[in-house]
Design a protein around this nucleic acid. Structure first.
Lengths: 196, 196, 196, 196
DNA sequence: GATGAATGAGCTTTCATTCAT
DNA sequence: TATGAATGAAAGCTCATTCAT
């Protein structure tokens, strides 16, 4: 029927996608390998041909979500050259993640809950946020060089931006917010105050 | 030794505590009723005498965590009478939850991940955050009445405060932050700007 | 239906027996926990109530086989007081194990094959043979004291007796021997030559 | 690289060797066809080109072990012409199998345990021991003809020699014997008594 | 001849829940 | 009230075998 050799990249993607679907549909820890297999219209066996175990598959799902999101933010920033433009577009991009990549925070949420008990996931998450925050610090450094920002503000600001963005996204996941758009704008405004 | 009557409240508390311990030790969904029973030095059977099922027990654990935390914040605010004092102490209390009640956000995290798939937990969480935010809005209303705050700022500010606090707490859970104390102070300062 | 408390000793015995039956019927590694459960007319779950895992159950089966056999030999020897009587009855008892305890060598065979790869079983087997051989050496020591035996003969003789007995039993398991009884008698005679 | 023709004997040998390695490394029943394939740096598929199934492969492994060992013993005996020399060298060769062919008894052990439940293996083992014992009886027959041995001793002696040799080898596999060499010499001496 | 992708039955083990005592 | 024995469904995972290429 179908080819029998060289399926690796296709199948891996197919399975990761199916796992993502299952996670969104049933929630982390509430779907089985059998569910994934059915969702991918494959047998349970193949999954273990491409992934060491369930944990391994789950880690790949997370990795993909992270690299997608990081890329989105970087792309948005790289359209600008001036410090102010970069900073603003970073804020907007970060605030827009839930809109551009709707599943991201739901997936993240599931993994965060596991992270204190999961030696493999914990460093992945830490690295992701560190990357994103370090990227922001690089932008802010330009502001420091141009005397727009006080050097000491840099680390504090980067942390506050990250946590505010995370907090907003999680709230959106949790609560039926009616004024999301407005809150996002306020978020951008709040932090732009720092460079005025 | 022998069966006792009137044990109800004690036993319930004993079991809820044991469940909390298990959750913190093993993570949500990674401990069994047997684990809880052992942790409470009871038999598995007796747990079903006091709780309908595992889900029910879990819900009670969450409820307790919520009411403890809400009380802490209210108590802090009620020490003040002036708007500025109330607002500042609210900010401080909310930022201090991870310090005063170290397990709270770890427990919350576990439930949040489940909430989209759990009809019973979802409204509990929503209600908790609504309470806390509405309480902040009541404080802010005093600021509006005293012309310190623009009426429109009220809802935005309350949401931003909540999400920032949540974001900081989650970041603290996730990442090894070395300057937590300083970030908390910055958080308070950030939002006090709104009423200057 | 049946009692619900204090079943431990009965059930453990019942399950060990069922496991022994399965091993004899299907051979080591060719029966599942489900087979054992069915053979004991129990559910698979109970087995894990009484035994840590399959390996644990298997180890208990072996332990029981060992202690039964050791006891048989000791009892036979203890009927005698004179050295010659003890030695002869030891030889006879050891040669008679396949007859008195027909499953013993079949069970042993199964475990021996596993032993080089099984950290728990290996020392059990070693200990069993050491016990039995040391017991023989204690008997032989009496012969040495009575100047019937040369001291140097003791360890060699004890090893040769053990291996000959083991070899005969395994041959009997493997090959359709028609003159088993006669071989056993020759075995006894062969080693009695040493004390003439 | 590219498919080759006429690979049959080489590949079979390569696979049998890999299977032997796996058996020694993991133990019978604890390695998969994939393990064998990897050990032979081949694909799983090709194994089924040369062997009907796993069982078939296993049988070939055993056959090879048997013919190697039988040959060793025959070669040792054929160096002598006199009865006494033949008998002694037979005893020595048989006692030396564990030294000359270290894996033989470990492999044998694995199959013996399976034999009562395996219609194909059982007769192979029986035949092997019969061959070796019949060969000994042929030697002993010369002793009978030369009036060195009583005719009735022949079958008994051949059985006792075989079982003693087997027993010693298994003991050596199982227990950490410190005086193996000495025991082997005693084994030879023990049975030489019969022809003095 | 050779590959490795794919299957699916079957394995061991866990666990929420029930219930006779 | 309290016990812990018992259930059985369902989980993750393995593996001999097949087969399109």
């Amino acid at each position: 029927m179908s080819p029998k050799v060289g399926m690796e990249p296709l199948r891996r993607q197919q399975i990761i996608l199916a796992a993502k679907d299952c996670m969104l549909q049933y929630g982390f820890g509430h779907f089985s390998i059998k569910d994934v297999a059915e969702s991918a219209t494959l047998s349970t066996g193949v999954i273990y041909h491409y992934f060491k175990n369930k944990q391994d598959l789950l880690v790949q799902v997370l990795k993909e979500s992270f690299s997608d999101t990081e890329e989105t933010v970087r792309e948005a920033v790289e359209k600008h050259t001036a410090f102010e433009g970069k900073f603003k577009s970073y804020l907007e991009a970060v605030a827009d993640v839930p809109k551009q990549n709707p599943d991201f925070y739901l997936i993240l949420l599931n993994y965060i809950a596991q992270s204190p008990y999961n030696e493999e996931v914990q460093p992945l998450i830490t690295k992701f946020f560190d990357h994103l925050r370090t990227f922001l610090e690089e932008i802010l450094e330009e502001g420091v060089e141009q005397d727009i920002l006080h050097p000491e503000t840099k680390p504090v600001l980067s942390h506050l931006v990250m946590s505010q963005a995370m907090g907003l996204a999680f709230q959106e996941q949790l609560l039926p917010l009616d004024n999301v758009e407005y809150l996002r704008e306020e978020f951008v405004r709040l932090f732009q105050k720092y460079i005025e």
